[in-house]
């Protein structure tokens, strides 16, 4: 009985995993088809692979959009880490007064939908002459990700045993040594998790990029939408573009898998 149940669970797990993975795999397969094969009413599993879709990405200048996405994601993630680690430190290891109020304030900045803030942001950007500027867009992404990063970092820092910190202080460690040599090495998997999540959020962000950028700083997600064509011959090239766009995030997740699992589990176990 037990083994039947276990087999059933394993079977269900496979079905769910394949169901989730199939659209991604289909996108990957389509990226190597011709437009006619990709648009065929009967799905084609056997076809002559071609790199036609990928070569068209170069013609449309996709590398510029990828560079912009990379700039925005890296700069915003670096900013978020630079600000969230000290903030979280002050909310956990060396707590300030009214920690709960401060935490609520940070998360309250996410209560308002992005659509409600876009017009004031647009006007501010216009008056500062930073519309279509990738660094300005990075600042928006940093502001967008900062609250969640502070909350995550705070839960990771709270996991650091007080005894370890106290021991370092007794040994004469100053604040910097305590932070860099004691605390951060312990929460490194957590930092990796925060960095990856912020990177993914920035990489995939669509709404602000559409409205705050035009010719020079447009990122990849809005560019992908431009491949859709009313005449219907766009599936192969769109799949190729989506595959290229998804690749950096998938690779980053793949390489940081071990750190990520450890990091995300850190805050979960008290």
């Amino acid at each position: 009985m037990r083994s039947t149940k276990a087999r059933l669970i394993t079977g269900m797990t496979w079905i769910i995993a394949v169901t989730y993975f199939f659209p991604v795999a289909w996108m990957f397969i389509n990226s190597f088809k011709t437009e006619n094969d990709a648009a065929s009413l009967t799905p084609k599993f056997i076809f002559t692979p071609t790199l036609e879709g990928f070569s068209r990405l170069g013609e449309r200048g996709m590398s510029n959009y990828l560079t912009n996405s990379l700039m925005a994601s890296v700069v915003s993630t670096a900013l978020v880490l630079a600000l969230s680690i000290p903030a979280a430190y002050a909310l956990s290891i060396r707590p300030i007064h009214k920690v709960q109020d401060a935490l609520f304030f940070f998360i309250s900045t996410r209560f308002m939908p992005a659509a409600a803030s876009i017009l004031p942001l647009f006007i501010i950007f216009k008056n500062l002459h930073v519309l279509d500027n990738i660094f300005a867009l990075s600042l928006v992404y940093a502001a967008m990700n900062l609250p969640i990063a502070i909350w995550m970092m705070r839960s990771f820092l709270s996991e650091v045993p007080h005894e370890v910190i106290e021991a370092s202080r007794i040994d004469g460690a100053d604040f910097e040594t305590e932070l860099w040599s004691v605390v951060l090495p312990i929460v490194l998997p957590g930092i990796a998790a925060v960095a990856l999540i912020c990177f993914i959020f920035s990489w995939n962000e669509y709404f602000f990029s559409v409205l705050l950028t035009s010719a020079n700083a447009k990122t990849t997600p809005p560019f992908l939408a431009s491949f859709v064509d009313g005449r219907g011959q766009f599936l192969a090239v769109l799949s190729a573009a989506s595959t290229v766009a998804a690749l950096p995030v998938i690779l980053a997740g793949w390489f940081a898998q071990k750190q990520l699992v450890r990091g995300l589990a850190m805050g979960a176990v008290k």
Binding site: L128, V130, I134, F135, A136
Partner: peptide, 8 residues
């Protein structure tokens, strides 16, 4: 990052 913002 901040300096980049003011680059027109």
């Amino acid at each position: 990052a901040i300096a980049g913002v003011v680059v027109v």
